[in-house]
Amino acid sequence: MSLLIEVLSAAFLLTGGFLCITGGVGMLRMPDFFSRVHAAGVTETLAAPLLLFGLLLQMEWSLEMVKVIMILIFILATNPTATQAMAKAALNGNQKPLVADETDTRGEGSSNS
């Protein structure tokens, strides 16, 4: 049983660490601010829970575990708000997103869906 927990924890920690680096690399490779936001999202939405779950499996039963879960909930609850605030500020600061296709359907509704 403890071996299973050990393996599970290691898997979570390694996957989380890998995703963390993925997000960092993505932040460097992406061409403009708005696509970098997506890369940063990888580190915060999946890497953080995986790392914290991996940590949770290694801890003994105590009140501390609740705090880890609180940190997790807090990160997941605040990350979208912070991201949205940054995106909105960037738009107001005349940062226009880089768009791949020339068909900009802005303001036309979802007629092409």
Partner: peptide, 18 residues
């Protein structure tokens, strides 16, 4: 997204739509 990031060609087509 992780697969797109590690792909050497970086296959992204950013969109900004309503």
């Amino acid at each position: 997204v992780a697969r797109r990031i590690w792909n050497p060609r970086l296959p992204i087509r950013p969109q900004w739509q309503r």
